[in-house]
Design a protein around this nucleic acid. Structure first.
Lengths: 352, 352
DNA sequence: CTGAAAGCGCTTACAG
DNA sequence: CTGAAAGCGCTTACAG
């Protein structure tokens, strides 16, 4: 079990170079020697150590994912796409999670991970930095692709949150609701900021005043507020307003789950459209703006592999347009329907 | 960025040994030299490569998680516990996922991962092998802890599925339902097998015949059948039986979500108790047998670290007893209530 | 087809 | 307090 290439070489009566060759099936090794080597390797339970190989080859064939808390449904579906895609290539996935505790510290954590140099490339999910911080990161000249973020110097794959929020809100307005509220998340979270922006634009374009009270969030900002309990609290606030909204756009599916429970508990149902389309959303009848999370993960793998193997090609940006999926939580009275089958099309992907 | 310890040594006018020392703050280095080294390191963006350190130290400080598909809510919550716990130690988490495609192949995949030797220890989640396979694995004499599995030779942390299923089913029976059905998952899946067993025992102990038709699953065995769509289909079958059950025990929360939708679509509600207690289950009002997934993950980290640092201690087994959490899906008429607050106690942990 | 040797980027006794 | 040197377990030109 703890045998090294030397043990095998000795036992098989060959040089370590030969042993190495049979495990890398490179240059022609005589079938006879190959078999002998394989036989003793099998007997001694030998397998080349990935660590030593990586050092000698100067490549580890690992792709490192940097993500704030894995335990988030969005990441999970993105990760699923990565997992399924990576088997097409000969790389392994390593996951590091950074703490969002001190926002300003995110860069340092990412730096630390990158400098240690485990991965040949880095997939950075939902890490939102300032312009100067991105620049600092960029200086490392290491393959990086950003997911759920956009920055000119890196390959990116993201979704247009502003547009999605605009679409959802407009839909609610067109259905005739005279007041539309919103459940947002952490005010420092990029996706939340953008979704609030899209909501505001839709309201303004429709000639509505935006009442600050109509934009609510819960207190608990764990996971940037993308939790059931946050949504529950937010909806409770909205419903106990003097003039509660007649409909609601919610920044995430997971919050919407809490919001729906809050509506039940308060005995008042209003139409709600969320954002994500997690796997279970179909089963709880949640209308939502679909992000192609799985596809995003798969695409990110493709991009990082390309960049690792061809570092000098131009950077590409893919921005998906979220699709409105209408279900029971905000049924489609007005016939502006977009059937479930349309899920996988109607997606814009523009490159620059 | 690509500078090595030699570059720093040269630039700082010291030996590489000294540079190494300042980065490992070992033996006393003169403050002056330390500062000088740190300065040039900073200037040249140097940081010791984890890969090279690992080889030289013969320890990587990485713990490898072996899991079939990450994108599973159960794993996700277990992973969350791992992530939060691992920061207490100076280890990093690396995740590999094995394909369940060919069952017999699982061992080979695990072997391959272990032999490559990235990790100092391995956390194996929901990989169910035969006795001889476990033995084969055991021969490597590598630190391993099993999660959601029990095997004498390894440290394990698991939950008593049989007991949980028994409790759930008995509860339903005690509530007076004359027939109780069950939604199971893949017949080859260990948790599913055990839960069916517990269900059967409860039925038999209550003097009921077990009708095979009353134990249903969907066709789609992706993720071992632990999906919403599988539960949907299973419940549809149950409800269209000549004599549909009056209540149902369901092998997982995620399937129950599908089952609940099926009940709505069929216009027939029966009480249902599931198994897991995922985070969102509280919000959809699902009664369920709670597995302490987060705690299981955290405990697994503790065990593996202990084993890595102290390989010769006795193996320990922790078996949690799932707690019944009653919610709207199977309200507690009979007063056999077990309040939510009891969640984190009432847990049995037996060591051997 | 196969071997000797240098090298990957570090750490760590061992001297001094 | 600091350096020279061996070693971690491989790969890979370079010869032959």
């Amino acid at each position: 079990m703890n045998s090294t290439i030397y043990d095998i070489a000795r036992e098989a009566g060959v040089s370590i170079a030969t042993v190495s060759r049979v495990f890398n099936d490179n240059s022609g090794v005589t079938p006879k020697t190959r078999e002998k080597v394989l036989a003793v390797a099998e007997k001694m339970g030998y397998h080349p150590r990935a660590l030593a190989q990586s050092l000698a080859r100067k490549k580890s064939r690992v792709i490192t994912v940097i993500v704030p808390v894995i335990s988030n449904y969005f990441f999970m579906e993105v990760l699923a796409g990565m997992q399924d895609k990576i088997v097409d290539y000969d790389y392994d996935l390593q996951i590091f999670n950074v703490k969002m505790a001190h926002d300003s510290d995110l860069l340092n954590q990412a730096n630390h991970i990158i400098k240690r140099g485990w991965g040949e490339g880095y997939l950075v999910i939902s890490v939102h930095l300032s312009d100067s911080e991105w620049k600092a990161l960029h200086k490392y000249k290491v393959p990086v692709v950003l997911i759920d973020e956009y920055y000119p110097g890196f390959d990116t794959v993201s979704v247009d949150s502003i547009e999605g929020a605009y679409t959802a809100t407009s839909h609610l307005i067109r259905q005739g609701h005279r007041s539309v509220g919103m459940i947002c998340a952490n005010p420092t979270s990029k996706p939340s900021i953008d979704r609030v922006l899209g909501y505001r634009r839709a309201m303004e374009d429709a000639g509505y005043m935006v009442d600050p009270e109509m934009i609510a969030a819960g207190e608990n900002m764990e996971r940037d507020g993308f939790t059931e309990s946050n949504g529950y609290e937010a909806m409770s606030r909205l419903l106990t307003l003097e003039n509660p909204p007649e409909a609601c756009f919610c920044a995430s599916d997971i919050q919407a789950l809490g919001a729906i429970k809050a509506m039940k508990d308060h005995g008042r149902q209003i139409p709600i459209i969320a954002f994500d389309d997690l796997e279970f959303s179909e089963y709880v009848g949640l209308s939502t703006m679909r992000q192609p999370m799985y596809e995003m993960g798969a695409l990110a793998i493709e991009k990082i592999v390309k960049r690792i193997e061809n570092p000098d090609t131009d950077v590409t940006h893919t921005v998906f347009s979220p699709d409105l999926i209408t279900r029971a939580s905000a049924p489609d009275y007005a016939g502006i329907n977009e059937p479930d089958e349309a899920r996988d099309e109607a997606r814009i992907s523009r490159n620059s």
